[in-house]
Amino acid sequence: MAEAYVTGDGHRACGICPSRRFPFGEFDVFERPTKECPFNPADGHRYTTDGVPVCVHPEKVGIPAGRYKSENAPLTAEIRLPTAESDLVPYLRELLHSAAPILLEGLIEQATAEIPRAFPDVDVITTLRRALS
């Protein structure tokens, strides 16, 4: 059996989150609870009408809402850099520390490409080091 997406203590995911039982791609992530993913009182979990397990806290699992299991949605994340240089490190720190590990490489690649465009005088490597420390 494949390893659950969330492992170990200290993760922000709820104790009953499907991310603690299934690998990425084996559950969907909704923005919030809806009628499309009702709570099942028999086991304490949420499911789509097709029986796909659903997480309703994307900010806690670090991945955007998506129908990863039911529609085989691709996992993507997009950087939206702040307009002020002084907000850059705090923004990147929050983004990178709360992102799912599966997203980190892509986010760092995007930051490496976008920072020089938005802030030509900023050293990308130094900025990323500060954000990741």
Rank of each mutant, 00 (worst) to 15 (best):
F24P: 06
I79G: 11
E59I: 07
L104M: 06
T7D: 01
G15C: 09
F30Y: 15
R21M: 12
P58Q: 04
R129G: 00
A99S: 15
V124N: 01
I79A: 08
F39A: 10
A113S: 12
A77Y: 03
P120Y: 08
I102C: 09
P38Q: 04
R46N: 14
A73R: 02
T127E: 02
F22H: 14
M1R: 10
T126Q: 12
F24R: 06
H57S: 13
P120F: 10
T127V: 15
A42R: 10
I108K: 11
A111I: 11
S98T: 15
V122I: 14
P38A: 05
G44S: 13
V122L: 05
S133I: 00
S19Q: 04
A100V: 06
P74T: 11
M1P: 14
G44L: 05
E94T: 14
P82M: 04
T76W: 03
E114W: 01
G15S: 11
T126Y: 02
I115H: 01
H45G: 09
C17P: 05
P18V: 05
A2M: 10
G66C: 07
I108E: 08
R20W: 07
G10M: 06
E31A: 14
S70N: 03
L96K: 01
I102S: 09
I16N: 15
C17K: 04
P53V: 09
P74H: 05
P58M: 04
C37L: 08
V89K: 06
V89Y: 04
L75Y: 08
P58H: 00
T112P: 07
V56L: 07
V29F: 02
T112K: 13
C55W: 03
G62R: 07
Q110E: 11
Y47N: 09
D50V: 07
R130A: 13
V54C: 13
V54F: 10
E36C: 07
A111D: 03
I16A: 14
E114R: 04
R130N: 09
H45I: 01
P38S: 06
T83M: 03
A73S: 12
M1F: 13
A99V: 09
I115K: 00
R130G: 01
G25A: 11
R130H: 06
Y68K: 02
L81G: 04
F39D: 08
R117V: 15
V29G: 01
A113K: 15
